[in-house]
């Protein structure tokens, strides 16, 4: 044990960040079943919910017929009947377009699902803090020369990287399910989508870590998840457009950062991009991320230094 620890001087302030981040990620990609489930989950969602709520089929030309008494009363010719059917069919598409901004509901929903999956993944970062405390790992890490901020940032980054990977999977899976990119979609837009996800995930996981860092009970993050999960998801544009919601819900949804994340991603992926709106989305989510990350890291850092 005579060898000197000469490396100590050359060590960076962020040493251990990748080791701890990778530790979290390994729990996921090294466990084949867990990894497989994260792949299957979007298929189930898109397959079941996306197809069950296939709003497009409700208003397609074949989904209704003109009542016979109307035909006899107005003495319609077959050509006229056909024309009317076409008209109503297009009307359906128009309704979809004006409601969801796209004629493909599954595309609308898939983007909502990306955000929803990110929300869930970041919630689990709060849970993993509690587990580390309970299993004694947190104390062990605290006794090593790893910076306190690194301990928190590793949780934030692992949740963020995971969410971004899952988003990619959802997109890839959504294509065979009929995902339609917007008219002016450019593959570079994907970078924008990941930038948006990065911001919101960093903000959300910092928040969930700060909420749970004091807790040693696994019930706390569960309760927090149950409490915030539904409002954050459904009081947003994840599955339904905000302007068709009741006014009170609109008020909630219009401050929900999830709405801006989802809108930003839709602008980039499926809408005819409205750049003013996109910049506004990025600004809102960016500020949210900066504020929550600062609060989260400061609170956690303080607590870990008690």
């Amino acid at each position: 044990m005579s060898e000197t620890n000469g490396h100590l001087n050359s060590r960076s302030k962020l040493h251990g960040l990748w080791a701890l981040t990778n530790r979290e990620l390994k729990k996921w990609y090294k466990a084949p079943i867990v990894f497989l489930l994260t792949l299957i989950q979007p298929i189930i969602w898109l397959g079941l919910l996306g197809n069950a709520l296939n709003l497009g089929s409700l208003v397609s030309p074949s989904s209704f017929t003109i009542p016979p008494q109307v035909i006899t009363q107005l003495q319609l010719t077959p050509t006229q009947i056909n024309g009317l059917q076409q008209l109503f069919g297009n009307l359906g598409n128009q309704i979809l377009q004006s409601t969801f901004g796209t004629t493909s509901y599954i595309s609308f929903m898939a983007v909502g699902m990306i955000a929803f999956t990110a929300l869930f993944t970041t919630m689990f970062s709060g849970m993993s803090v509690v587990w580390d405390r309970r299993l004694g790992f947190l104390n062990k890490v605290l006794s090593t020369p790893v910076s306190r901020s690194v301990i928190i940032l590793s949780k934030v980054f692992s949740a963020t990287l995971r969410s971004m990977f899952q988003a990619l999977i959802i997109l890839v899976i959504a294509v065979p399910f009929g995902f339609q990119f917007g008219a002016n979609f450019n593959p570079l837009n994907l970078l924008g989508v990941f930038a948006m996800l990065f911001l919101v995930c960093v903000g959300l996981s910092s928040m969930f870590i700060a909420i749970n860092i004091r807790s040693s009970r696994i019930e706390t993050p569960m309760a927090v998840m149950n409490l915030l999960n539904l409002p954050l998801t459904f009081a947003s544009s994840a599955f339904f457009p905000i302007d068709k919601m009741p006014t009170w819900l609109q008020a909630v949804a219009s401050v929900n950062p999830m709405s801006y994340t989802i809108d930003g991603m839709r602008q980039l992926l499926i809408f005819n991009t409205n750049y003013t709106q996109l910049v506004w989305d990025f600004a809102y989510v960016g500020i949210f991320a900066v504020v929550l990350t600062t609060i989260g890291v400061v609170l956690s850092w303080r607590y870990l230094n008690k």
């Binding site: 490396h7 960076s12 251990g16 990748w18 080791a19 701890l20 530790r23 090593t144 020369p145 790893v146």
Partner: peptide, 9 residues
Amino acid sequence: LCADLYGIP
């Protein structure tokens, strides 16, 4: 992993 926490190359 423990070695990484100490910044050991």
